[in-house]
Computed example of a mutant assay.
Amino acid sequence: MSIPNFTLYGDPANPRCELLHVEDIQSRSRGHDWEIQPHIHQSLFQIVWVARGSARIALDEVDHQAASPFAVSIPPGTVHGFRFAPETQGWVLTFSSQRLLDGNLEGTGPAFQALFATPTILEPGGDDPAVARLTALFTELDSSFLSPGLGDAPVLHWLTQGILWHLAQAAQRQQARLTPNPQPQALFTRFALLVEAHHREHWPVARYAALLGMSSPRLNRLTRERCGLGALDMIHQRLTREACRLLLYTSQPVARVAAELGFDDPAYFCRFIKRRTGLSPSSYRQSRGTPHEKNPRPPEASGAAGTI
């Protein structure tokens, strides 16, 4: 016996389908005694969003029990079935990747990949800001889908992309909750290594934080706990130390040192160094001697804050 293959549950599969379809859970499930038997969609993706109620969920060989609010992302070829509690409220969104991504809107691709890498149950919790937004988006999508003349309107794609984006964000938060945080020292070490590799590129703190899987305020708390400096101060300290080395141990003009360190404006570089050391680059170089006169060790840079 083969696994039933449908376009929509109960409808014959259509391999040429370029579907974008949304319906409330009750409209199809009530007629099947709230049970959707295990089946597959060969070329279609589905999102099931349950705003109120619960369900027993079959995803391939594993069964799950979930209570609202929750979402299920179902890639093509995944065996899935549901036994909903009577009067469960929510929506089922079905679409082809071709139909959705043809809009060429930036950001859909990463969200799409994150959500459908594997079949996933997302349980954001009632206090997650995504819950109210997702329910509102599904309500609007359902209303627009049923409105005469909007069958192929761009608004359907925009609303679907908004749903995917919010679900992707909720998935990231869920992953962060379920994955034990690395030890603070390990995170601090990773940040220090990133600064070592990228200080000349003038990355903002937010970019470092994103690579470490944390917020900018949390990264600042971590660095202050470990070394007494904010994250930006650490970046600037490393950049200043490199500038001092180049000023002392090379004979490059100040403008070339600035360019080598990623400063587009030499005048801004001079202000940055003066703010950090109390001296202009030329004065700093003169006060410490040239490479031909002696071979000093550059002092540690000041911890004073600044902005690039």
Rank of each mutant, 00 (worst) to 15 (best):
P129Y: 08
P129L: 02
A130Q: 02
A130Y: 05
A130G: 08
V131I: 06
V131T: 12
A132Q: 10
A132S: 10
A132T: 10
A132N: 01
L134R: 04
L134H: 02
L134W: 00
T135Q: 14
T135D: 11
T135F: 10
A136V: 05
L137A: 13
F138K: 02
F138C: 08
F138H: 05
T139M: 10
T139W: 07
T139D: 15
E140D: 12
E140W: 05
L141D: 00
D142W: 15
D142E: 10
D142Y: 15
S143T: 15
S143M: 14
S143Y: 15
S143W: 13
S144H: 13
S144I: 15
L146G: 10
L146F: 13
S147A: 15
S147W: 14
P148G: 00
P148M: 05
G149W: 03
L150T: 09
G151I: 07
G151V: 08
D152Y: 02
D152I: 04
D152S: 09
P154E: 06
V155E: 00
V155P: 07
L156G: 06
L156A: 07
L156Y: 04
H157E: 10
H157K: 12
H157M: 12
H157T: 14
W158N: 07
W158M: 11
W158Y: 11
W158H: 11
W158F: 13
L159Y: 06
T160L: 00
T160V: 00
Q161L: 11
Q161P: 03
I163Y: 01
I163T: 05
H166L: 09
H166M: 03
H166V: 14
L167P: 03
A168W: 06
A168I: 07
Q169T: 13
A170E: 06
A170V: 01
A170L: 02
A170Q: 06
A170P: 03
A170G: 02
A171S: 10
R173S: 13
R173E: 14
Q175F: 03
A176C: 04
A176V: 06
R177D: 09
L178S: 11
L178N: 03
T179P: 07
T179Q: 03
T179L: 01
P180W: 04
P180T: 08
P180K: 02
N181K: 14
P182L: 05
Q183Y: 13
Q183L: 14
P184E: 01
P184V: 06
Q185A: 15
A186L: 11
L187N: 00
L187E: 00
F188E: 00
R190H: 05
F191E: 04
A192Q: 15
L193H: 13
L193N: 12
L193T: 12
L194R: 09
E196S: 14
E196Q: 15
A197N: 11
A197C: 09
H198W: 12
H199S: 08
H199G: 04
H199F: 15
R200E: 09
R200P: 07
E201G: 07
E201N: 07
E201R: 14
H202D: 05
W203Q: 09
P204R: 02
P204F: 09
P204D: 03
V205Y: 05
A206D: 11
R207Q: 11
R207N: 06
R207I: 04
R207D: 06
Y208N: 02
A209K: 01
A210S: 09
A210W: 08
A210G: 08
L211K: 11
L211E: 15
L212S: 01
G213S: 04
M214I: 04
M214S: 02
M214Y: 05
M214K: 00
S215A: 12
S215Y: 00
S215L: 01
